[in-house]
Design a protein around this nucleic acid. Structure first.
Lengths: 111, 111
DNA sequence: TGATATACCTTGACAGATGAGGTATATTGT
DNA sequence: ACAATATACCTCATCTGTCAAGGTATATCA
């Protein structure tokens, strides 16, 4: 893990929603893809991941259903809702904004 | 406040150290400059700010001293240490890294 | 005299992240 | 046959940073 926890805090929802935007998925797979995308530099802790799923589902941004695999471990799939899409756009916007503001706050210029 | 709290979480130390890199300063002024720099979109809550000062001083990244104003409210000034400069560089590096990683994680590409 | 600005501080509560533990099934190597 | 590993889920207690709400004190301005 080459990235501090607090830098990710608050971004987990956005990251999860980004994955579900393309297709329904499940926890284990999302973490595999994250590891792959970042050359194993980063993945969500399981407890963090499942906490986020609960939070997102309670907020109505995702819904879950059990997969119908008849082999291997059972999977709980998640699907993004229309509300979730809106929330994702809001989070993206907020993130783009945060990058600008934080960079401004650590910049040397006084204006 | 147009930026979510959790997006700032973990960046307060870096932001404070960035200010002190240029010159010694004190809490109230740092917040004034932050507000000014961001068109009043953002400033640290006082409790957050002073908590951060305690944390940074305990870690040896800053030292404090009382100003010698003979008018107005007293000011506690903070000065960055050599350790603090190193920490700042580390935090900057981490932040640059986090931006890349997070952007990668929310990107549509699978590679 | 009262409001506002400057300037500091503490405490308790909250939310998200996480370590540590658990369960269960399928595959692969010996 | 058996152990190890990979897949896949889950909960609970704890930690940390944030912040609302409260406080103190001085100077200025209407």
């Amino acid at each position: 893990m080459s990235i501090a926890a607090d830098l990710i805090r608050g971004h987990t929802d956005m990251i999860i929603l980004a994955h579900l935007l393309k297709e329904d998925s499940y926890g284990y797979k999302i973490n595999r893809i994250m590891a792959e995308k970042t050359d194993n530099k980063f993945e969500l802790k399981e407890a963090t991941l499942y906490t986020a799923f609960r939070r997102l589902e309670e907020s109505g941004f995702i819904i879950s259903y059990w997969g119908d695999e008849n082999t291997g471990a059972r999977r709980r799939y998640y699907s993004i809702t229309e509300e979730g899409r809106k929330e994702f756009l809001r989070l993206i916007d907020e993130w783009e904004n945060a990058k600008i503001i934080i960079d401004k706050l650590i910049s040397g210029s006084d204006i």
